[in-house]
Simulated scan of single mutants.
Amino acid sequence: MAETTAVRITRVDYGDPDAVRLVAEVQQEYVRRYGSPDDTPLDPLMFVPPTGSFFVAYDDADAGRPVATGAWRRSDVVVLGTARTAEVKRMYVVESARGRGLARLVLAHLEATAAAAGAEALVLETGIAQPEAIALYESSGYTRVPGFGHYRDSPLSRCYGKDLRCSSR
């Protein structure tokens, strides 16, 4: 993954200007794909350690430009034999930086930091209009789990989980 060697992933506050701009971009992506933004209730405090973290990836080969986001927050979802779960939120890579493996890099970072904070499994929700996200998650060891959260009953929603206790990635 030589193309990602100049990428630095940094924990930031949910209100950080780079985070705010990239979250606005991902919301526009949802509008393009689904016709409306994600209206899952989020509190910025959900992303404050030790109960969560929000990350921005910066491309140091491009003047430190913010190119991706990813976050996790504690979850009450019981899945894969554990209640010690965290939920992945706001995975996004700017269009000009796609195809470089950044989403996989950010996802691995989320897995490692959530596990270090005590999570035994990660869960996430994505949608059928995001086939590249589904492919990423499935190729990264995530398996379908029962629906949960705000979109649990939506036919457009797909929920996934990964047991971090047996992960060697």
Rank of each mutant, 00 (worst) to 15 (best):
T69M: 12
A129I: 04
L105H: 03
Y34V: 08
S167W: 14
V78G: 07
A117F: 02
L164T: 05
A119N: 00
E25M: 14
A129R: 12
S167G: 02
A68R: 07
T5F: 09
T126I: 07
D18E: 07
V56L: 11
G141H: 04
Y58M: 04
A61Y: 09
G99N: 05
A68I: 07
G70T: 02
D76P: 05
L124G: 01
P146I: 09
Y34I: 13
L107W: 02
E95H: 12
E3D: 14
T51N: 13
A24V: 03
A112W: 02
A112Y: 00
I134T: 08
V31T: 11
V56S: 01
G15P: 01
T5L: 12
A135R: 15
L80D: 00
P66C: 06
L110P: 06
A68P: 00
V78D: 14
A133K: 03
A97S: 15
Y34T: 05
A108T: 09
R32P: 02
E138G: 10
Q130W: 10
S36M: 13
R73E: 14
S154H: 12
Q130N: 01
E111V: 09
S157I: 11
P155R: 11
G35C: 06
E125H: 01
V93S: 04
G52W: 09
Q27A: 15
L45I: 11
F55E: 06
V106Y: 05
D39R: 13
R90S: 11
R144E: 14
S157R: 11
A6D: 14
H150E: 08
R104E: 03
E120C: 03
T5H: 11
R100T: 05
G147R: 08
A86K: 03
L156W: 12
D16P: 00
S168P: 01
L124K: 04
T126R: 04
V93M: 08
F148E: 04
L136C: 06
V94R: 15
S96W: 08
V93H: 08
C166K: 12
M91P: 06
R90C: 00
P131A: 09
V31Y: 07
L105G: 07
D38A: 08
A61H: 11
E25W: 10
R165M: 00
M1W: 10
D18C: 12
A103K: 06
R65T: 15
A68N: 03
V67N: 00
E25G: 01
P66F: 10
L22K: 00
